[in-house]
């Protein structure tokens, strides 16, 4: 469920870069303050472990298909929330670079979706609460399953939100979310079972590993935790609010600035996507009460009246467009050939 660049708008991608960046910077400070020098190699090697563990495929009962772990919750449990978050961020960075999984613009969002919820929501609010009272195989199992499910539900929800807010796809919020949440409930259950078994394995073999990992046992835990949440909320409000205001004035900030720079609106009026999806959301959330849309109640996109930017095109312009596109590609090929020819000289 990695978001891809192609589906994101710069406003949404940017918002999540900022939010993730804030949490990320704070986590880095925290980890650097822990001074436990053991963690430096430990984090790296455990990050590599998550990759390796993903090679171990298991059969998902009743389906005949197979799956592997995601590992966010395991990281939070083994390394604590801050180091866990950083480690997950590094895993996703490497995936986006080498395996083209996700994308660089989407990286902020992906780190947020897959890292923030396990480390800063599920771990302190569910996992720690349950296991702090009594650490036993049973409590570990219950805590792992519940926290993984919770984290994945949040993660899936945010994938939906990011996609819909970006407005690149036409997927309606309602049906997208009706698909995503149940799927991730099942994934969460399985991932939770594996996580529980792995944590229990460590608990039996070397219980001290679980204690060493946990910076939350220090007293200041509650306060600093509040800080992270507060920090996150502030950045989210600021970034989200700012950028969506920007987006609401002119759905795409960059295009708005283009219009200003070039003095004409040569680009078609930006898509309905972000508008209409915001409108749909608005009904439920009233987070942005000042939006005014023509028909905010309509969910079916096909019926939404839409001044498509392309509807004005006539066949003549179309032909010119096709010729232009062809020529553009031809010139790129030309450039490549030129470079090829000059190569023996340069190298």
């Amino acid at each position: 469920m990695h978001m891809a660049d192609a589906l994101l708008s710069p406003a949404v991608g940017g918002t999540f870069w900022l939010v993730t960046g804030g949490v990320f910077t704070y986590s880095s400070k925290r980890v650097q303050h822990e001074i436990d020098s053991r963690k430096i190699p430990l984090m790296g090697v455990i990050g590599a472990f998550i990759f390796a563990a993903q090679m171990i495929n298991f059969t998902i009962p009743g389906t005949g298909s197979s799956g592997h772990i995601g590992g966010g919750m395991i990281l939070a449990i083994l390394l604590g929330p801050y180091a866990g978050f950083l480690t997950l961020a590094s895993i996703l960075t490497i995936q986006s670079l080498f395996f083209a999984d996700g994308g660089l613009l989407a990286l902020g969002g992906n780190i947020f979706n897959l890292g923030f919820f396990p480390c800063f929501i599920a771990y302190p609010l569910v996992y720690k609460r349950i296991t702090n009272k009594r650490t036993s195989p049973k409590s570990i199992t219950a805590a792992s399953i519940l926290s993984v499910i919770l984290a994945l539900q949040f993660g899936a929800l945010f994938v939906v939100l990011q996609t819909v807010f970006s407005g690149v796809t036409e997927l309606p919020f309602k049906s997208f979310i009706l698909v995503m949440q149940p799927i991730h409930l099942i994934i969460g259950l399985i991932e939770g079972l594996v996580t529980a078994a792995v944590v229990n394995f460590i608990f039996k073999a070397e219980p001290e590993i679980l204690q060493v990992a946990d910076p939350l046992q220090q007293n200041d835990s509650k306060r600093s935790f509040g800080k992270v949440i507060l920090l996150f909320a502030c950045i989210a409000l600021f970034a989200g609010g700012g950028l969506s205001w920007f987006a609401s004035q002119n759905p795409d900030g960059l295009e708005w600035s283009i219009a200003k720079i070039t003095g004409k609106k040569e680009l078609p009026p930006p898509e309905q996507g972000i508008h209409s999806s915001l409108a749909k959301l608005q009904e439920k959330t009233t987070l942005w009460p000042n939006y005014h849309f023509n028909e905010p109640g309509i969910y079916d996109n096909a019926q939404t009246p839409k001044a498509s930017p392309l509807s004005a095109l006539k066949t003549g312009t179309l032909l010119s467009g096709i010729i232009g596109a062809g020529l553009t590609l031809l010139s790129i090929i030309g450039i490549v050939l030129l470079l090829r020819m000059s190569k023996p000289i340069t190298s």
């Binding site: 083994l78 394995f201 073999a205």
Partner: peptide
């Protein structure tokens, strides 16, 4: 591979 076996392999690896 059952989930049980996989978990044990992952645990060992960890």
């Amino acid at each position: 591979m059952t989930i049980h076996v996989a978990s044990s392999l992952i645990g060992h690896l960890l």
